[in-house]
């Protein structure tokens, strides 16, 4: 009796899990197949495999639909923003975790306060501020804003991390005659690398997929980053019909993400979930 019940329930379990796997995977497989089809095939034979692989779709997406440009713009913004976020946050977090000075707590809570507010509250003043700094439609404007909005959580996380590191190594380095800067860059920063890696993954995904900030701060098409570029491609699609190129563009975006994810899934999952629970 018990045996039968458990067999039945494990059958149901497997069934639900398989159906959900199909629900997750199928739209993406369909997208990849569609990106190799002609527009004709898209409309009239949704279930069949592409008759011939239309590599041309990818060429059109990359050049005439500017996905290539959007991709490079995103790289130009995200790489410096990410590196600067990590180094600036690590310096601030190190000082907040390891040094005693007037206002230490106050500054820590000041950074914490930034996590309380939704970015939507800042949109209008931020737009006007970046405009008055003459940084609308510039990469440097976007980079500075990306860094600033990544600081609160990154500093919060790294301060906790630096507090857990042992003090012996620091003391030993000072006795050996290292100055404060050497202690930080040669001893503490390498020790903090697991924390820096989690924050690197967390912020990379956030910045790579950032949507609302570029939508507000970048309005000229030659400076679009991937997310908004894709959005405007979709919006334009209502006037010019090149569906297959749009599928190809989507595949170009998705497949690298998928590869990186499959390789680093453990780190990515823990990076993203700690972000949610502590944030």
């Amino acid at each position: 009796m018990v045996n039968q019940e458990s067999r039945w329930s494990s059958f149901i379990t497997q069934l639900v899990l398989i159906i959900w796997s199909i629900a997750v995977i199928f739209p993406m497989l369909w997208m990849i197949f569609s990106s190799f089809k002609t527009d004709q095939e898209l409309f009239f034979s949704p279930w069949s495999f592409p008759k011939e692989l239309q590599w041309n779709n990818f060429a059109r997406a990359w050049t005439s639909a500017h996905v290539g440009d959007f991709f490079f713009n995103t790289v130009i913004v995200v790489i410096p923003a990410l590196l600067l976020t990590l180094i600036i946050s690590a310096m601030a977090a190190y000082v907040l975790a390891r040094f005693d000075f007037v206002g230490n707590r106050a500054i820590f809570y000041l950074f914490l306060a930034g996590m309380l507010f939704p970015v939507f509250l800042a949109l209008v003043p931020l737009f006007s501020l970046v405009n008055s700094l003459n940084m609308l439609n510039t990469f440097q404007g976007l980079i500075l804003v990306y860094i600033a909005y990544s600081l609160p959580f990154t500093i919060f996380f790294l301060t906790g991390f630096f507090k857990t590191l042992p003090t012996e190594l620091e003391e030993a380095a000072i006795i050996d005659g290292a100055n404060e800067y050497q202690v930080f860059f040669r001893v503490m920063l390498p020790l903090a690398s697991p924390g820096l890696i989690s924050m690197g993954i967390f912020n990379f995904l956030g910045m790579w997929n950032q949507y609302i900030l570029p939508l507000v701060l970048v309005t000229s098409e030659d400076k679009y980053v991937l997310s908004q570029g894709l959005y405007f491609m979709l919006a334009k699609q209502f006037y010019q019909n090149d569906w297959s190129a749009l599928f190809a563009a989507l595949t170009i975006i998705m497949v690298p993400t998928l590869i990186v994810y499959v390789i680093f899934q453990k780190q990515i999952q823990s990076g993203l979930t700690t972000g949610a629970l502590k944030g």
């Binding site: 310096m91 907040l96 390891r98 005693d100 930034g114 509250l121 800042a122 003043p125 600081l151």
Partner: peptide
């Protein structure tokens, strides 16, 4: 615990300046 203002100030300044300008100031203005 050490008190080294020559380190504390330059290490905190970039974060405080960016955060103050692009995050805190807009929120207060809002």
């Amino acid at each position: 615990r050490r008190r080294k203002y020559s380190l504390i100030i330059p290490f905190l300044a970039p974060a405080l300046i960016l955060y103050g300008t692009f995050v805190l100031y807009p929120y207060l203005q809002a």
